[in-house]
């Protein structure tokens, strides 16, 4: 039987149908400098062009043998369209991701204009996704920040964090606004034909919030989002997650993704084998810092701990060592021929 195409492999995997081998994909950015350099552009230029986004994602997949492509790379497209601006650091040396320069001063002044979703770079991202979907070879990933993390992009995070205690009603009302933004964007991307959707509620781990607060402030809105969007849908949270794994598993996602701080063995025990588990190597340490000879043990460690696919814990830092990425792909393919806890093999 012929090997699956990258798109087939990811699509079947996300439905928990048997695959030929473990797919190499992610719900976070996977663009590499090797692709950017090959295009002869600077990193700062890639974010504003649908053509550059689609091409850099595709080239990264081609160079390293990824099964998926995912855009955009920065977290500012939605805040920018909500009127908060975007710093692109066009003249900075090296790689700097765009940031949001201005925030709403308080929870009361957060005012989202009706036509925001078709402004600034939102059409650029949608055009890039359309190009990638129509190309057909690779699985196309869409992602949106979760409502709390998105909120932290458009309002001072400390106002939000202190507001939870001091102005709970205002914070809840603000979270409702952010939730409808997340749902709107995720549905638009799904309507374009993306193959899976990751909701990245990155900033809500227990490094910041107590489990009790997570249950009150984060879980209800994530449930609302996962109820509103189509499968396949993934929930990703960075940082401390061991104390909220069960609550994350109760949000309605088809898969959970964690970074390197998560105890995967314990997590698998808690969530069982009926849900996809993704994670959890440190992308900067593994792909940029370590010697390539150290990478296979890290990847094998993730597989042995019970993941269904080895995901980086966050965006890949684009300036990867090529040989380290190759070691990730090779190791996951080799040891991924065996069934994983939630997905069989053909």
């Amino acid at each position: 039987m012929a090997a699956m195409t990258p798109k087939e492999r990811v699509k079947k995997f996300m439905k928990r149908e048997p695959v030929d081998t473990m797919p190499i994909f992610s719900g976070m950015g996977m663009v590499t400098v090797q692709a950017i350099d090959k295009m002869g552009i600077r990193f700062a230029e890639v974010h504003g062009s649908a053509e550059y986004l689609a091409k850099s994602a595709t080239l990264s997949a081609e160079i390293f043998g990824f099964d998926s492509v995912i855009v955009p790379y920065d977290m500012c497209t939605i805040p920018e369209a909500m009127g908060r601006g975007c710093s692109t650091y066009a003249d900075a040396e090296g790689i700097l991701y765009p940031t949001v320069p201005t925030k709403w001063e308080n929870l009361d002044t957060a005012d989202i204009k009706p036509d925001w979703v078709s402004t600034y770079r939102m059409p650029v991202v949608e055009e890039a996704l359309t190009k990638l979907v129509s190309a057909g070879k690779y699985a196309v990933g869409g992602w949106v920040l979760g409502p709390f993390t998105l909120g932290g992009q458009v309002i001072e995070l400390d106002l939000l964090l202190k507001g939870i205690k001091k102005e709970a009603d205002k914070v809840q009302s603000f979270m409702k606004k952010m939730t409808s933004v997340v749902i709107d964007v995720a549905k638009r991307y799904q309507a374009l034909g993306v193959d899976y959707m990751t909701i990245r509620e990155m900033g809500s781990g227990t490094d910041l919030l107590s489990p009790r607060m997570w249950k009150q402030l984060i879980q209800p809105y994530l449930r609302e989002i996962f109820e509103a969007i189509e499968s396949p849908k993934i929930l990703h949270i960075c940082g401390g997650t061991d104390l909220i794994v069960e609550m994350m598993n109760d949000c309605g996602a088809d898969a959970l993704s964690f970074d390197q701080k998560n105890n995967l063995v314990e997590t698998r025990r808690k969530i069982g084998n009926d849900i996809l588990l993704l994670g959890n190597f440190d992308p900067y340490g593994t792909l940029c810092q370590k010697d390539a000879s150290e990478v296979p043990a890290i990847i094998k460690g993730c597989i042995d701990a019970g993941v269904d696919a080895v995901w980086p814990g966050c965006d890949i830092w684009p300036d990867v060592k090529a040989e380290n990425v190759e070691a990730w792909v090779k190791t996951a393919r080799e040891f991924g021929k065996q069934p994983s806890p939630a997905v069989g093999r053909i």
């Binding site: 400390d158 964090l161 205690k165 490094d207 910041l208 919030l209 607060m213």
Partner: peptide
């Protein structure tokens, strides 16, 4: 002891 998290610390700092 994980009784306080960052929101509480921020308010204590205030």
């Amino acid at each position: 002891r994980q009784e306080y998290f960052v929101p509480e610390i921020l308010m204590c700092a205030d």
